[in-house]
Write a protein that binds this DNA or RNA. Structure first.
Lengths: 218, 218
DNA sequence: ACCTGAACACCGTTCAAGT
DNA sequence: ACCTGAACACCGTTCAAGT
């Protein structure tokens, strides 16, 4: 046991909201949201649970902060260029990539309505370029919402499967209830077993962004 | 205080897995997933928490069961016809409608990989009709996954906003951090404030299902 | 100014005991 | 066969006390 007084300054960086949020995201990545507790988060930071309350309001605040951090990652991952359609595609890809890096944090997103500066900045950037390229403002927003929905939904479904497969299952069939009828087990196998997630994601994007002015298209 | 012995048989239906799951879904609809506890679920059924363990394995089992119940609702809401594209559309609409009826249960879906009989049957039904209409099997699956992703993502985003708006906010600005820059607050207002969710959902569907054979299309 | 011990009401879950 | 009391380890959160 090393006595702590001598090394106090070196041993432990002071707590901060940022550090807490980072630790929380890392903990969620490793163990899942449902396992996160203030006690364990404190332990991960080498601190008692109660100390956290000097830097965050409560657990809900921590969770909101984690979602905010994820949006910051998405914002930096999606650097916009000139072609607005390519931008929209990249934005969707950024969402998918970042959520793919934090699969266990995905369920957090539909559960807390956080609109942080980072997410709003990202939206603004995307829309601005589109509008400057001649797209109607309302359309630019509508299409961006549509693309975002798709990216989120895709990430939600696929990360989920991958998590499940990675964790326990040599084959998809093992994820089913044991008394699932054979012909339904087969459906499960095709539906979520063999598919190329990347190609399929691009399929949806291609379908959505094929035309410039979808509202007028028909 | 009515004495209970005399009425025991009438007063209380026996517990069952089904009854527990229904109560759980109702509780989640009213109070949100994070508020659900075995103790409170028991109380809602006029029973001690421990009694539940005679019918369900644990809390995780309850949550899985709730997701299963939601898929059953979706299955019955999506009755397929002859036109496979219209079917796909209706399937997406069914997902959106049912999730719209259970907004607080939405976060549950990306957090548990449940493939129940109901969800697999629904998939099978959809794909079968499409394949019979001449769509390639792989394409039928891929497109169904794409449409499902979109429907789920759309539901996740919009129900979330509506919940937030309904609960506290006369205007979108009240959902933001007080020190959000004005020009970002404006973005938030347009992005999630004024939009017609129904029309927009149909926009995405239209874009996705415009052609019969998207893989070959380009 | 920031961290902690003690404390509280509330969790999930088990098991032996009741009917 | 099904329900319950008592019990356990573990939650989130507060507050007064320490440095």
């Amino acid at each position: 046991m090393v006595t702590r007084t001598a090394r106090t300054r070196v041993k432990r960086k002071p707590l901060s909201r940022r550090r807490i949020l980072n630790a929380a995201l890392r903990y969620i990545d490793e163990h899942g949201v449902e396992k996160l507790s203030m006690h364990k988060l404190g332990a991960a930071l080498d601190v008692e649970a109660m100390s956290l309350y000097n830097h965050v309001a409560n657990k809900s605040d921590v969770l909101d902060g984690v979602v905010g951090a994820i949006w910051e990652e998405i914002e930096t991952a999606a650097a916009p260029g000139e072609d607005w359609r390519e931008n929209y595609r990249d934005f969707a890809r950024a969402i998918r990539d970042v959520l793919g890096r934090h699969p266990r944090a995905v369920p957090l997103i539909p559960s807390r309505p956080v609109m942080t500066d980072a997410s709003l900045r990202a939206v603004k950037t995307q829309v601005t370029v589109a509008v400057e390229s001649g797209v109607d403002t309302e359309e630019a927003y509508a299409l961006l919402r549509t693309v975002t929905s798709y990216a989120l939904g895709h990430a939600a479904i696929y990360t989920n499967w991958e998590l499940a497969c990675a964790s326990c299952a040599p084959s998809v069939a093992d994820l089913l209830h044991p008394d699932t009828p054979a012909e339904l087990a087969e459906v499960a196998d095709v539906f979520c077993g063999r598919s190329d997630p990347d190609a399929e994601f691009e399929l949806g994007l291609g379908l959505m962004l094929r035309r410039v002015a979808p509202f007028q298209a028909r």
